[in-house]
Design a protein around this nucleic acid. Structure first.
Lengths: 253, 253
DNA sequence: GTGGGCTTTCCGGAAAATGGAAGCCGTTAC
DNA sequence: GTAACGGCTTCCATTTTCCGGAAAGCCCAC
């Protein structure tokens, strides 16, 4: 008679475990095998298998013809109901296009989520400097043009949390000193735009401006990313601020 | 001594139940109270409460200041990893913009999911005829321009399922006869574009064309939606087919 | 053939899910 | 003023569903 396994208890709520599986997906790994999923979520294969089957049945994930798992359309559909405004992306898009046509540079639209910036839309300028970010991607609040804007207008407790923790460095020019960063944030609030000079990569510069809802609260930020040295921050600031202003007005309508 | 409740057994897998909660959200109801969620998902409040809390903890949903639940950014982020190509939307967007600038009409980009069409991107023409669809929304495969294209190139079993079931009628002009629809699909394949003449609303006409991946397989469709009678389908077809061709080429690169 | 990696199924035992009830709000009605 | 109402949250005994090791399939590469 075969020895049957002795179940060792699970260690937490089911849903949490299941959702950890979805965390395994990111921009680099859009298609994963069951084994990879189980490994990355740190759970037995059989458990992962059962859970993924349920996700599959609902349409949260689907299987490729090769048996790999990937995020399903149902999830995308649900995600598009998320309140990035409401209607922030749709409202802003035409104006971002205008900005892109005029400058032929990279245009970015982002919101804050906790202590990170999330990129909501991005238009690549033809022949512009390449940027690291991706729609749906996250980044530190402290480095980018949009990040500085969003941090400058974030609630005090968020600012404290960000400034109180070690600050990520991406280049030699990245500002990692809290008090210097505080001055930059004050400057951003005073001038109405932010400048990130070679803080993300050594050949890029970005200028961001705040987008406000009808109550005047900052809900998003727009930025231009250009090659360092190709123009002055002030010239960009005029364009970006104007665009941000226009989008704010459209949002309130 | 207080009578303690007698648990009546639940009736299914946990995850399925939890995901049913998320189904309660749609374009009309983006923010819901706990009670509404429980009602729409048909489960006790306490259960719904516990599950929603877990979703909240993970970031799938968030609570407004008034206590309402809504879809969270985390879910949007995950959703943007869904395989609408890969990179279909981002690749196609500039070309859709071109099409929109030239025609000043409505431009739509859609993919097939099962027996429905899912709209991936939509650009409203200034002053163009209003359309019912929404980004992230679904519609029958049998009525719209994009739907006809996607159905025409769908696997045989999908076509059989769609044509074998009763076909939704939206206007007096909607084609609901299976054999007539079969001829339209053959025509769409032969000509390389589809025409939906007043089949969705009595004042609109749409023309769709297929977008193919590097293997020649149809992965999406693009369409123009115009006011009925404002121009001929043939004139639109030239533009739409050209655009679809260009997007297909860009996708393969 | 056979070895390895990945997937799928099985099942006894136990952890985690369940939902009625009761306690808390804030708001409206009398 | 207070009673009634609707919605949210917490509690806990019961038991349903989930867990995961093991073993069996599968497929490809060597």
């Amino acid at each position: 008679m075969p020895r049957r396994g002795q179940p060792t208890g699970p260690t937490g709520p089911v849903l949490g475990r299941a959702l950890r599986l979805l965390d395994a997906f990111d921009a680099q790994r859009r298609e994963l095998t069951l084994s990879e999923l189980a490994r990355r979520a740190d759970m037995p294969l059989s458990t992962a298998h059962r859970l993924m089957n349920e996700f599959c049945a609902w349409g949260a994930v689907e299987r490729t013809d090769k048996g790999l798992y990937r995020i399903g359309l149902r999830l995308w559909e649900l995600g598009s109901l998320a309140p990035r405004g409401p209607g922030l992306r749709e409202t802003a898009l035409p104006f971002l296009e205008d900005l892109s046509l005029i400058t032929r540079e990279n245009v970015q639209l982002a919101v804050r989520e906790g202590t990170e910036v999330v990129f909501v839309e991005r238009i690549a300028g033809s022949g512009a400097v390449p940027v690291l970010t991706r729609v749906g991607g996250r980044f530190a609040l402290t480095a980018t043009g949009v990040g500085l804007v969003l941090l400058a207008h974030a609630p005090a407790e968020v600012q404290e949390e960000v400034l109180g923790s070690p600050i990520d460095r991406f280049t030699p020019k990245t500002v990692t000193d809290a008090s210097q960063l505080r001055r930059m944030l004050a400057d951003t609030r005073a001038k109405g735009f932010s400048v990130s000079d070679r803080q993300v990569t050594m050949d890029s510069l970005s200028v961001g401006a705040p987008i406000r809802d009808r109550h005047g609260e900052v809900v998003a930020a727009v930025s231009l990313v250009v090659r360092h040295g190709s123009t002055t921050p002030q010239a960009l600031a005029r364009l970006v601020r104007t665009s941000a202003q226009t989008i704010s007005r459209a949002l309130s309508a």
